[in-house]
Amino acid sequence: MRYSIIATALFAFAQPALAQDKPVLTVYAPDYFGSEWGPGPAIEEGFEARCDCDLEYSIGALLPRLLLEGEDTKADIVIGFNTDVTKRARETWLFAPHGQDNASLDLPIEWTDDIFLPFNWGHTAFVYDTDRVENPPKSFAELLERDDLKIVIQDPRTSASGLALLLWVKAVFGDEAGAAWKELDDSILTVTKGWSESYGMFTDGEADMVLSYTTSPAYHLIAEDDPTVKAAIFPEGHYFMTELVAQVKGTGQPDLAQAFMDYILTEEFQSTIPTANWSLPAKMPEAGLPDGFDTLDMPEKALFYDENEADALREPALAEWLEALS
């Protein structure tokens, strides 16, 4: 018994001892990305079919790891940045230009960054179930006034979507943001560390609405054939969220890294995004979006602060938030 335990342990930790002649492209990604249920596997398969190389994901915290490793980083590519960390990431001077045509992107805002390339996008939105909420708020202002809805949001100190909400409220209410949070406080059931906890509370029926994305209903519609999940659309506009990819300047595989950057905006890559990442492709594929995506409610107006504006707003907005909700 004792020996079999040790054997099992050794077996589990053993490295696969395969001869690797192919060059390896190391891609740092957030943990959801590399899993079976994220977009990682499809992208890996697609790229390996054309590069004669081995794409290896290394998952975990992106920016902290890069800052610690600095020039010694093992990454050739980093995928999955949010816009709230690009300023800090840019200042490491670790990244090289992406070399893609920003004008070819299909985003609701103008994109001029030559380092960080968007590969998908969406907006923040409050998502509800039509069976439970028959009369959703028709504007952000109405949401503040309503007292019959309980919403669950993410903490801006621990989650990217929570931070996006903070900036969304700032973009909509400006100097009145603090007062807006005070009004919203009655409707906030609770605040969670990350998106998963919030969404779990929503699907379990604990909360009426959850801070999520305009594209969230697509999953329920397409994968579960459930048309009852909707995003409430507000005429004030919705905060634009995108995920970004960049190549590392000091990579030992510059050609492969560039080939990967060239792969991002291809038809093949972009058409995996909607149903693998449940978000919108950064460049619309010729074939358009999969069935179901066209029926999603989308806002007409996208709100966005670039990284410098967002950086300047973050601390005072956070202080306002803490003050209003404590």
């Binding site: 943990d31 959801y32 899993s35 998106w195 969404y199």
Partner: peptide, 15 residues
């Protein structure tokens, strides 16, 4: 980790 990855992929039932 798989549990969290399932949740991130909206798969609450499998999670």
């Amino acid at each position: 980790m798989q549990l969290y990855a399932l949740m991130s992929g909206y798969r609450m039932e499998e999670a």
